[in-house]
Design a protein around this nucleic acid. Sequence first.
DNA 1: ATTTAATGGTGTAATTTTCACACCTTATAT
DNA 2: ATATAAGGTGTGAAAATTACACCATTAAAT
Lengths: 229, 229
Amino acid sequence: MEEKLPTIDSVFSIDCLIFGFDAGELKILLIERNEEPFKDWLALPGYFVKQEESVDDAADRILYELTGLRDLPMKQFHTFGEVNRHPQGRVITVGYYALIRINGQKELRPISHYAKKAIWHSVNNLPKLAFDHTEIFNNGFGKIRRRLNYQPIAFDLLPEKFTLTQLQGLYEAILNKKLDKRNFRKKMLSYGFLKELVEKQKGVSYRAAKLYKFDRRKYSKIFQNEMGV
Amino acid sequence: MEEKLPTIDSVFSIDCLIFGFDAGELKILLIERNEEPFKDWLALPGYFVKQEESVDDAADRILYELTGLRDLPMKQFHTFGEVNRHPQGRVITVGYYALIRINGQKELRPISHYAKKAIWHSVNNLPKLAFDHTEIFNNGFGKIRRRLNYQPIAFDLLPEKFTLTQLQGLYEAILNKKLDKRNFRKKMLSYGFLKELVEKQKGVSYRAAKLYKFDRRKYSKIFQNEMGV
DNA sequence: ATTTAATGGTGTAATTTTCACACCTTATAT
DNA sequence: ATATAAGGTGTGAAAATTACACCATTAAAT
């Protein structure tokens, strides 16, 4: 009894899908690899899980080491377990995603030498990625799109204070379709979890829009278990 | 380059959540373990993934070996990666689920000696399960409950021909709440994917109900990408 | 033959949600 | 002053959701 099992180092990995929103465009965080295989290719930030850390912890550590971003609220979306997905051997990987404010984050600066650099790339016109990362991206992006319809995940991508037009632009970028302005505003406001601020937009050469905040407390009260958090 | 990685045997596993519906009750498939650790305990059917098989393939094989059930349409729902979830070492497990017709299946008969037997147990009053299987169960069951609201997963649990009352009973069992009979029928029929049969229920000591079939072809046509398959 | 027990089967009105659609207002730059 | 660019607003039609109660049918029991 109590015999020891082998270690998981080098056979189990994490890949991260980090979405940001900037200049009306949805972006994904990629790294330029500095290691074989796929040296110099663009890839999702990802690396091996260590023996003594939980998978969730590994996701945080790996993202930090490859991009300099820390403590993002990442969640699992799928585990990829095909036999030949890694050229050097059998590696199972679990995909995590997070939606974040690009400008709320410090600059991208890989800590580990496995990444040459980290960049934000539009989700449109993605180049071919290393390994099966294109498939991982498509899988995760699809799930997030569907989730947007019943969970308030979009607010994580916006600055703390935002206008309704920015919010709508974000929904349109994720869903990849135009929405009706009046209906969108009516619906968003009807939920009751947007807090209207006195403050207005500044530095625009047109009528300044009201700013809003996402009120997470109100959201939790209103929806509790309904929206399937 | 092209160095070989270690193998994944004994560090990566599958656990299966197989739901069935019988006598108005939702059931879960459990095995009685025949091996330490947790010998003699009830557990979810689960075992280690082999080096040369995909994770999806492993799920099919393992379920078959432990319960005798084959080729169920299982899907992943979450990967559990805490460091101390297995007493003998570091094991990461991926949870799969399926919803099936209990009576449409051959009898339960473990092939491998790792399971003494396999049984159907009500999802209510579950005993303490081996490992962190209670947590895995709760996680998966919660997801299925939510999924029921936008995907026609319930039909997999019923016999091919079923009455609307049976279908409603199943929804009530999964959602754990009473539904209005007229509204339920109206809504189900309005989808247009239920095919009314000429045949009626037999062997009941009250008015025989019409039988229906779930028409998967019509379903796909109607909903295509809408319901987030 | 009659009664009983159990489920089958049906419709309507009120409410809520969704959707389609167009114009005036405001702030700034010139 | 005027041109520009986005801000901000309401209504009516259609669809979906909800609440709600009674008679019909069958087999078994008497």
